[in-house]
Design a protein around this nucleic acid. Structure first.
Ligand SMILES: [Mn+2]
Ligand SMILES: [Mn+2]
Ligand SMILES: [Mn+2]
Ligand SMILES: [Mn+2]
Lengths: 172, 172
DNA sequence: CCTACAAGTTAACCTTGGCTAAAATAGTGT
DNA sequence: ACACTATTTTAGCCAAGGTTAACTTGTAGG
């Protein structure tokens, strides 16, 4: 069931970027202080709380823009998930005030939902364009961006933006 | 509860890397075909199935290396989670054949667990070093890497490695 | 108009990953 | 040996995100 029977091979690689390991070859790198380490994991758990919501509102906004309406059938197809699952998640989105709809009708975003969609879309685009600028293939960049986007801080986003901009001016 | 009341501001930014939008200013960018889009989300769901396991075995390996033993108290402290939660997750890790221990004793990794820990550690290190090479601060890089690592494909990992290596030779 | 079929909802179930509170075990010091 | 403390486990709770199967509603054709 779990896809971890095969561990995809990661070419030749040592622990440090340049092979030599100049100073201390003892004790790899030490663990960060316990409380800081805990905050790292907490940040990840935090991101997990909102990522599905972000993907939903982003997708709903895209459907509204590109097809004129957001039907839960389309969401189910695009998310690769059953309609029942979409229905339940939409209930949650409504209870959070992100989405509005009348029963058996198609979906709309509230102001708050639109704001979240806009932020998510922008962040998603920055990550995707950055990966492409790095040289990642379109297909892979889309897959990686879909997951990475939820774990990229403001600081990193700005650096990615700058890299993409400069890289775009350099060669193309 | 949900931390999405405030939307962290992302500086001035338009949709395309260079501001001008040369050709089509109509219709942003189109949605990918439905089945491809579904595969993106499926890949993310897939990563979510293993990421906690990966973090656990990685942490257990680190504790074994740096402290000589892996006690569930330490794991709980480092993960920022209750001991009961650790106990339950460890049960799952054991049932998956990744961890072994006798009741009330500290933890060890099986062969399989060590293999997973080694892969995860390596991938984590590549992502962390890449972020630092990009110019992200240590603290932020650690936080982002903790989440991103689980969503970075082989292809992207190799590109990150190459970037880090070249960047390391360029200035430093 | 009414009937089929498509679309949406609900019910019942499952696993994961959190929690608290209480019970069991291990280890330590006197 | 025994009692106290720290550690680990268990039990019972919860929410999220998934499933299938059955039910309801909307809509388009004849
Ligand atoms: Mn997105
Ligand atoms: Mn996403
Ligand atoms: Mn890791
Ligand atoms: Mn991680």
């Amino acid at each position: 069931m779990l896809p971890y029977e095969h561990f995809g091979y990661i070419g030749p690689m040592t622990d440090s970027p340049n092979d030599v390991t100049p100073d201390r070859l003892c004790k790899a790198d030490a663990l960060p202080p316990s409380d800081q380490h805990a905050q790292q994991y907490a940040a990840v758990r935090n991101a997990h709380e909102t990522e599905l919501l972000e993907d939903y509102v982003e997708l709903i906004a895209d459907l509204l823009e590109h097809q004129g309406e957001a039907r839960s059938t389309d969401i189910a197809a695009r998310m690769g998930v059953s309609q029942a699952t979409v229905s339940k998640t939409v209930t949650r989105l409504k209870s959070l005030g992100l989405v509005s709809s009348k029963p058996y009708r198609s979906l709309f975003l509230t102001e708050k939902g639109e704001a979240m969609a806009a932020m998510s879309h922008q962040r998603h685009a920055i990550v995707l364009q950055f990966l492409r600028a790095l040289g990642v293939s379109d297909r892979t960049a889309r897959i990686d961006a879909e997951g990475m986007e939820h774990h990229v801080s403001q600081e990193t986003l700005e650096i990615m933006q700058r890299y993409t901009r400069e890289q775009g001016h350099r060669d193309v």
